[in-house]
Simulated assay, not measured.
Amino acid sequence: MKRYGSVLGLSEEGKAEYRKLHAAVWPAVLAKITECNIRNYSIFLKEPENLLFSYFEYTGTDYDADMAKMAADPTTQEWWAVNMPLQRPLDTRKPGEWWADMTEIFHHD
């Protein structure tokens, strides 16, 4: 199992809609997340900066293939299309990233 953390901005004007969407995530999106070996997935909001922090654990054996499978899913693409206009990616993210990956520097079980 590998842990992943990432960060992303959230627009002030999109915050209420983002909360509403995530209070009732589409069942097919949740099923695809599970199918792609993601567990213990959480998103946290830091206000007033409007930063989203995402954490999940990956339990599969081919992360790139599972992420490609998720990205190819039409329902997931639709979900992303609804959410992305509400988000504000960080200027410091790496090329190709939307959510900026973070490096784990401490963990305690």
Rank of each mutant, 00 (worst) to 15 (best):
W80A: 13
N40A: 11
A23E: 15
G96H: 12
G60F: 09
V82D: 04
D109R: 10
E35T: 02
K2T: 05
K20A: 14
W98S: 07
R3Q: 13
K20E: 10
P27S: 04
S6D: 05
L45P: 01
A72M: 03
K46S: 11
E12D: 04
Y18H: 06
P74E: 09
W99K: 04
D91A: 15
N83L: 14
E13C: 01
T75W: 00
P27Q: 09
T76F: 15
W98L: 12
E12S: 09
K20C: 06
R39N: 06
Y55Q: 12
K32R: 13
N37D: 13
L10W: 01
K15L: 12
K46C: 08
G5D: 04
P85C: 05
W79I: 04
W98Y: 09
I38C: 05
I43F: 04
P74M: 10
E49L: 13
N40P: 00
E35F: 05
L30I: 10
I38N: 02
D64Q: 13
T75A: 12
R19E: 08
K69M: 08
W26M: 05
L90V: 07
K15D: 01
E78M: 08
E97I: 11
A65E: 06
E13S: 12
D73G: 04
H108W: 05
I33L: 14
E78H: 14
S11Q: 03
N50V: 09
Y41G: 07
D109M: 06
T59L: 10
L86D: 08
D64E: 14
L10F: 06
P89N: 09
V82H: 09
D101G: 13
M84W: 06
Q77C: 05
I38G: 02
A65K: 13
D66R: 01
